[in-house]
Design a protein around this nucleic acid. Structure first.
Lengths: 205, 205, 205, 205
DNA sequence: TATGAATGAGTGTTCATTCAT
DNA sequence: AATGAATGAACACTCATTCAT
């Protein structure tokens, strides 16, 4: 069993509650005290549990962090899948951008710190090297209305997806850090970057 | 004397060498072992010096980190200033994008980790709250050829500078992390995002 | 929570035992190795515990020292209060002197070093600026049979209390350091100084 | 050569000056920053010298401290010797008390800290186990007018000298620490204790 | 199963002392 | 002789993890 997998699936209702409490406590600690204050004792205390309990469910601190990352990604990812059902590339991307901005501004500090954690090498393997986000983006770039030069060139599409993901992540992180609150405005500006990027023809070397 | 200022200027040649060795060792340790392995003993060892020497010149670990950040920024910033001398907004921005890509791909892991460190609250004050990069960007957006709606609206220009800085940083970080090596290609794609973003009219609310 | 307060009350029996062991170990280390050898690792080792345990209960080395000071004062102070119940100033003071001599000669090195620690500015606040000892002395100088010029002049009484405290502390410390063992003899000599001092009329300026 | 002896007698005038400067710097650092701030680098800096120079003249930090102790004692001791020339025990003691008070209140923090250092076991040997002060006191207790029971009983006289030394030291230290400034008042009160003590007949066991 | 006490390797930092220049 | 750069053992303190109860 990998050291990052959850240790045991909680079966009893009480156990489920404990796991949830621990995850939310982890989120709260991260938001309140940053990575500096994020330690297992603080999380357990905040959850009203003991460190021992924490280690019953999470084999390591990293496993806890990873579980939190996944929890935050889950809801977001479900919404993303729905966005994929939209008819055109443009609509799908616009929806994705909107969701990203909304997700980030909901709990900005949490989202930013988890973005950072996500990047740690220890997690890359566990998260699948191409994150879901990147795959969804790449798929969207093959939808009707997407730039022709991307539709049929998969490597190029992957590269574009990487770029868009990086732009979106960069802009949402920064906006959250600055304390922005207006989701629509942020989404509009990210859209400008995204669609502006896509409008440019590929480079002739 | 702030706890982040360098402790004493090295006077003897030997001392200058030690300080340089310490800074370069800090860079190497960061690149090789990441923030996890970045500790003062490791840095001193790698520099072929003792911890004591490190603390002769840097009053704290943070001071060392800050000095490294500044060292990396210095050359970059000088080039930026030269870019500002270009006649048009487009040329200046293109140059800035090129410099950013080049800077990042030169020592990608170092640049990315220092970006991260730079964002820590302890450093914000010491680095001047608006980083130089943002100010330069904002100035460029007031140069001839810049979008009209930005030239005369300073707050909007500041916001645009923030966005561009975030996009550029996001894309360069990600490219470096992926191991990209082609500076020109990266610069072209970032340019697409930057100029695409600027081509979009401001949002009507 | 002040950095000098105990960190958490030990709840389990094992924890109580650890705290006691740590305090006694601190006393033993001080006695055996003096302030020079008094470090947290040594204390923990002597207690058969780990540094980690020490810091579970004491937030800092100073907190440990303070706790030890208070532990040593506690018993002594209870006896002092009993002495205050005696009918006359003379009896009360005699009892106080006796208690002081006894306290000091019980663990002379410990008492002396703690006297020294007690005087450190960090502790003054936590110990109450006028130590209990001084206050008790001052109260005794207002009891029946006390010199008339002190009974009614509170500032002068405070000064006299300071002087007596200083004499007693000086003599007990020195006796302990010399290795004296005869409590009664020491008490007699201190009494000579104390009552001699009080017998002298106030200075006419 | 003991590690506490001064390393070499300074012969050149410049060397004498350096040694003096170092000693005075040590005193100033002790007064300003206490034992906590008393380190060789700080002393050298304050003296306008280098650590290297310090170690040219003093083989160790303790040697420096000891030299400072001796410097402070020297002037005092010369005055004490003069006091011994007075005709009666009472006059001699009164003079000694006056000198002690004056000495302490001149540089109270320095005197107190040096008293503390003096007591460290490392120094006991170097200072001669019975300090000069104690010997002078003992001699005075054999002068005309001294209590009969002391004149002829040398051990008892030694004991009384110890007690008086301890009282005087305790009272002067405390007065200095409290910030008292009135030498005469302090001397009067110490005199009360001293002569009061001597007036009491020896204990019958 | 849950608790929280215990562990100890690891980290930042200081400072007495040495020694090349 | 003088300088001050260099050394490194030592210390206070943290925190992920284990385990007795």
């Amino acid at each position: 069993m990998s050291a990052l997998q959850i240790r045991k699936a909680p079966r009893q209702r009480r156990a489920v509650h404990t796991v949830d409490a621990l995850l939310e406590a982890a989120a709260l600690v991260l938001e309140a005290d940053g990575l500096e204050g994020f330690n297992t004792n603080a999380v357990a205390r905040r959850a009203g549990a003991s460190v021992g309990s924490l280690y019953q469910y999470f084999p390591s601190k990293d496993a806890l962090t990873l579980a939190l990352v996944l929890r935050e990604k889950r809801k977001f990812h479900e919404a993303l899948v729905a966005a994929q059902a939209l008819p055109t590339c443009r609509e799908a991307l616009a929806s994705l951008v909107d969701l990203s901005a909304r997700q980030q501004l909901t709990r900005p500090n949490l989202a930013r710190l988890l973005d950072q954690e996500e990047a740690r090498p220890e997690f890359r393997a566990a998260l699948g090297d191409g994150s879901n986000f990147r795959l969804v983006l790449s798929a969207m770039l093959a939808m009707p209305g997407a730039p022709a030069h991307l539709c049929e060139d998969q490597p190029r599409r992957g590269r574009a997806a990487d770029d868009l993901a990086a732009m979106i992540r960069g802009m949402t992180d920064a906006a959250g850090e600055r304390g922005e609150r207006d989701v629509d405005d942020l989404a509009y500006r990210i859209g400008a970057a995204v669609f502006g990027y896509l409008a440019v023809p590929p480079r002739q070397m």
